[in-house]
Structure formats: C-alpha cells, structure tokens
C-alpha cells in the first residue's frame, strides 16, 4: 500500500443523517461541523452563506459544495472538509440537494479530494452510491483518490 497523504476529512466531520429546513440551514450545519473539528472560526460560516447568495455552489447530481469567500479565508485554521447527507433533501434554489461537502481551505490540502469528487459526479453510478450510502467508511472509500488505491 502506498502511503497516501491523509485526506482532510475528519471522521467526526461526516454526518449522514442530517436534516435541514432550508439551504442556509444546511450550509450553517456544514459550517458548524467544520467549527467542531477546529478548522475554522465561527465568522467563516457567515461568509459561506454570503458566497452561496452570490453564486450557488450546486455542482450537479444532488451535490453542493458550500464554502466561504476570499475574505473568509482568514477565518480558516486548516484545510478541512465536512460531508453532510440530508436524506430528506434540501431545496437548493430549485435543485434537490442530498449531499453537501462543506469546504474550508487555506492551502491546497483539499484539492485531491475535490478532484475525486468531480470524477464521481461525472459517473452517475458512483454519484448515486455517494448520495445513498449511510456508512461513513464508504464515504471515505469513495472519496479516496483512485491513484492511491
């Protein structure tokens, strides 16, 4: 097994049974999860919502990737990702979102993971697997960059 750099995904930042009443509520929960693992200051969460209001982070296949603004970067302590699944769905300006990948980044620690996520979203079967799994280990397995397997 090659030694792959660890993904910036803390097991505590995966919640697969979340519920949100609105898009902003879902984003706030993604932010609170990043806050809970010590990746950000609370101020970052407001910039995540601000960013979403200017341009949606919906990326297709029922997935959104909420993250902050350039100004919000100062409130990021380290690169981190949170994965929240909303089995009941969230209305994302008309698009039904089931999975949110919250992002806090100072550097490029999250790039491999996002790159893998893009590959998953281009493959409807894998996108469906990611949307439907209730198993955190499976989320890790799916997001692990293929080159490291």
């Amino acid at each position: 097994m090659p030694d792959a750099a660890p993904l910036p995904l803390d097991p505590r930042a995966i919640r697969l049974d979340a519920e949100a009443g609105s898009r902003d509520d879902a984003i706030r929960q993604c932010g609170e999860t990043l806050l809970a693992v010590g990746a950000i200051d609370e101020a970052y969460i407001a910039t995540m919502i601000e960013r979403e209001r200017s341009i949606s982070t919906y990326v297709g296949e029922g997935v959104a990737i909420p993250h902050g603004t350039l100004a919000g970067k100062d409130a990021v302590h380290h690169d981190a990702i949170s994965v929240l699944r909303f089995p009941g769905g969230v209305d994302w300006d008309g698009e039904p979102v089931v999975l949110c990948v919250g992002i806090a980044a100072r550097d490029d620690g999250h790039v491999r993971l996002l790159s893998e996520l893009a590959q998953i979203l281009l493959d409807p079967e894998r996108a469906k697997a990611l949307r439907e799994t209730a198993d955190a280990a499976e989320v890790f397995r799916l997001l692990q960059p293929a080159a490291d397997e």
Binding site: L70, G72, I103
Partner: peptide
C-alpha cells in the same frame, strides 16, 4: 473564482 477554494478547483482539475 472568488476564493479559489471550491468550484474553480474542481473545474481546474477536470
């Protein structure tokens, strides 16, 4: 993109 954090990273890798 605005922050160079999310969607632009994803598109650049694609």
């Amino acid at each position: 993109c605005d922050a160079g954090m999310g969607s632009s990273v994803m598109l650049a890798s694609q």
